[in-house]
């Protein structure tokens, strides 16, 4: 019973692969899946820090400008918003198709 299902699934995989090859003969057959896995996991790990980094730079810059020019909340507010936008831009650059 188990063996039969196993072999029928094997046959199905084979037919599926043939059909896929027929539809798209240029598809690289399982090539570079290792590298793609690595890149995918790397992308996921990057996304969070990219977003935070934009905000960190914005807040640090706003805080520094306020300290320097002595107009406390103005630049902090402005650059926090810009930094957040820069973080979103970073993530958009990362996942853009």
């Amino acid at each position: 019973m188990g063996k039969e299902t196993d072999s029928s699934r094997h046959a199905f995989d084979k037919r599926l692969k043939q059909a896929m090859d027929r539809n798209n003969p240029n598809r690289p057959a399982e090539a570079g899946s290792q590298g793609n896995d690595m890149t995918t996991v790397g992308t996921v790990l990057r996304a969070g820090t990219e977003m935070v980094a934009g905000l960190v730079v914005g807040v640090a810059m706003g805080w520094g400008l306020d300290r320097w020019l002595g107009c406390r909340p103005v630049f902090l507010i402005l650059f926090s918003l810009l930094g957040g936008a820069a973080g979103v831009l970073n993530v958009w650059r990362l996942v853009r198709p």
Binding site: L45, R46, T49, V52, A53, V57, A85, G87, L89, N90
Partner: peptide, 22 residues
């Protein structure tokens, strides 16, 4: 332009924070 500059300047921050935090 400020957003692009901030995005550019956030590169070393994200590079260093990612490695160190992990």
């Amino acid at each position: 332009v400020p957003i692009e500059i901030l995005s550019f300047l956030s590169r070393p921050v994200s590079l260093s924070i990612r490695l160190f935090a992990n």
